[in-house]
Amino acid sequence: MSTTNPQSDTQPDEGPRRSRWSRRPAEGTPAAAARARRRSKQRRRIGNVAALMAGLVLTGALYSTFAPAQAADEGSESTAEAAGRELYERSCISCHGENLEGVPNRGPSLIGVGEASVYFQVHTGRMPLVRQGSQAPDKPAIFSDEEIDQLMAYVQANGGGPVLPSGDLRDGDLAAGGELFRLNCAQCHNFVGQGGALSSGKYAPSLEDSNDLEIYSAMLSGPENMPVFGDNQLTPEEKRAIINYIQTITDMPDPGGAGIGRIGPVSEGLVIWTVGISALLFGIFWMGSKA
């Protein structure tokens, strides 16, 4: 790194400044009043500096008294945060920067994204990213649940942000959840959560294999192209209702037989041509040969 050390800028200044301080007028020179005036000015100046320093120290002390959590942040990390920092510096730092500030054209800042975002991105295997693309694909998670907790603690400690919910995430009205799902989610994720294509290689993923917490944290954090559904847009109860609907539909067996992807006319058209018409062509070909 070729950036200049900030200390190197200040050092040359110190010499002249010190000499200015030491350049005291000698005793016995004329215009004592002027001298006294000048001395009192200097004293006043020193007094101001001292008062400012005292004020700053006092403020710092007061702040550290009244905001102990933040103070501890600076001083002593919890063990989970320390472990999280270690994981972060090993796997995330190259794109998200030394201090979670992000790297241009590589990765966004993580300050303020909160543990919900970390949970979603890391638990679905989207992060760490294998390569830059239109969208991060989900894959088997690389970190264990414990490591994910540590990463979450580290990111949460540095900037805060949305936190993971607790309690039963399916505790909501099923039918209302369905209505909310069709209103807010279906245009990208499809009626049944099968996912769908977006522009330029981006896509809304299938919700089939998602667990409750992943769906909830996705709504909270708005990953990739998904908008954020904060608690003002969808209340926690509504989020739980949506999750209840998604998971109920996903677990529901298909009463009509094979689901063929549950994507409607495209797979149905494929089946009628490949299965229906083929079977009948086979049949009439056989019949035609039996003269």
């Binding site: 069709r182 209103l183 245009q187 990208c188 099968q194 769908g196 294509a197 495209v266």
Partner: peptide, 11 residues
Amino acid sequence: AQVSAASQPDW
């Protein structure tokens, strides 16, 4: 007010 991804007519 609602619409779904992958809405198609029959083949």
